[in-house]
Amino acid sequence: MSGIQLGRRWWSAGSGLPVIFITAIDDDAVEAEAREAGCLAYLHKPFEAKLLLSAVGWAMSEA
């Protein structure tokens, strides 16, 4: 199961918690699919710590 599939199951089960995807896959189509599925942030490895901290801060404000 991919992370996107897991996210879809998570949200369809009624979870309202925000999800941050972290991946080594640098593919615009995969990122678009993740965002359409409902992810809050999509980070490509390697990424700067400030990007993760920003995404976590945003997720906490959305939860």
Rank of each mutant, 00 (worst) to 15 (best):
F21D: 01
E36W: 08
R35A: 07
D26M: 03
V19R: 05
A37H: 02
E48K: 02
P18E: 04
A24R: 05
A41L: 02
E62I: 09
I4H: 06
D26Q: 06
I22A: 08
A49F: 00
A63T: 14
I20F: 02
A13K: 11
A32Q: 12
R9S: 14
V19Q: 07
L40S: 09
L17Q: 12
P18A: 14
T23S: 03
A63R: 13
G7P: 02
I20Q: 04
E48G: 08
G14R: 12
L52V: 04
W11Y: 15
W10P: 03
L51P: 02
E31D: 07
S61T: 13
A63G: 15
G57C: 08
V56N: 07
P18T: 07
M1S: 12
A55Y: 00
L43K: 05
G57R: 09
G16T: 15
R8C: 11
R35I: 09
E36Q: 15
L51E: 06
S54A: 14
T23V: 08
A63K: 12
R9V: 13
P46I: 06
A24Q: 10
E33C: 07
R9I: 13
H44M: 03
V30N: 01
F47C: 01
D26S: 07
G38Y: 09
A63I: 10
D26E: 07
M1L: 05
G57I: 01
W10C: 10
E36A: 14
D27F: 05
E48V: 00
L6I: 11
A49H: 08
E48C: 05
I25R: 01
A24G: 15
H44S: 04
D27W: 04
E36T: 12
D28E: 13
C39G: 10
L53K: 09
W11F: 15
T23F: 01
G7Q: 06
W10N: 05
L51Y: 04
G38W: 02
I25E: 03
Q5K: 05
R9Q: 13
M60Y: 12
V19K: 09
K50G: 05
E62D: 14
V19A: 11
L43E: 01
A59H: 03
M60F: 08
W10G: 04
M1T: 00
G14F: 14
A63N: 13
Q5M: 04
H44P: 02
W58R: 14
D28M: 03
A63M: 12
T23A: 06
L6D: 05
I4P: 03
L53G: 11
L43V: 00
K50W: 08
W10E: 02
R8W: 06
